[in-house]
Amino acid sequence: MRPYTYTAPATLEEAVRALSEAGPGTKVLAGGTTLFDLMKLDIETPPAVVDIRALPELAGIDTAGPRELTFGAGALMADVAADPLLRRDYPALAESLAKAASQQLRNMATVGGNLLQRTRCTYFRGGPPFPCNKRLPGSGCAAIGGLDRGHALLGGGDACVATYPGDWAVALIAFDAVLDVTGPRGTRTLPLAGLHVEPGERPDREHTLAWDEIVTRIRVPVTAAGRGSTYHKVRDRESYAFALASAAVAVTLGEGGAVEECRVAVGGVATRPWRCPSAEEELAGAVLDRRSARRAGAAAFAGARAGTHNAFRIELGIRTVAEALRIAGERALR
């Protein structure tokens, strides 16, 4: 690990100032479960780190509000996952956190930091000798034509097929979450859908935040579809593993089981949290049954591009969406 300077400001204002003063390349440290991990691998080598873990402005969870749910960016994954109202009214959001990592890691990681969790691509994490355009722009991509069993089917390109590994952002994007962001130029609101970017020619650019900006709050508009939702995750083992495929799904059903509102996003299969409007269109007004659920899954993966070893995850992904719709549909009827 490279040396770095460490500061732990007491307020958000101080943190923004400290970040600006430390200059480009500085990283904010919250739970540390991604940043400190990648620093140990010499993948992240910031000269300075600003610790925002304990900032009071980033605390707090409010899931009772009439118009929106709010999550302080510094709230812990474990606390949000255990929130009783969230578990009852938005099981997809709670499950996306509960099925991520381990309880120890959920006790460290924050819901803000988790949004920017970096890929688990073994070639990215492995360092030399593997070329990686994300880690070392211009060096190439070892995953293309390599061991790509876990790599992205959606949103990849010729430069990078690294999978976005998070679960929480997948669930949030299904619920049209927005972020409050603070920096030296003031505060702005950013739809979560506008946070992550596909790799394109610059896989090293993963999001639209400026280096000196801090996510302070995550807000989710209230929707009746929350109760009929689930986050379904398929892994190589029963727990403590990243998704081979996952789906965040929320529905409301009208008379005769016709779909009124429908939200679908998929995880573990794309280069960024992946909302699936075509799947939602496929279901709109349709009766939710095995066939329509399967059609929605197929629509979600219509644009999928398989590599060498990952084609099976197209079928797995389709089934995962369909299974999530089945579970969500049952919940919507309760």
């Binding site: 073994t122 994490r125 492995g126 070892a142 390599g146 061991l147 083992r237 029963e238 727990s239």
Partner: peptide, 20 residues
């Protein structure tokens, strides 16, 4: 193309957990 073993950690070399 590279030799050696690629999934050289306890996240990618998948051994059972309690829930398995």
């Amino acid at each position: 193309r590279f030799g050696g073993f690629v999934n050289a950690d306890l996240a990618d070399y998948v051994i059972p957990v309690n829930a398995d």
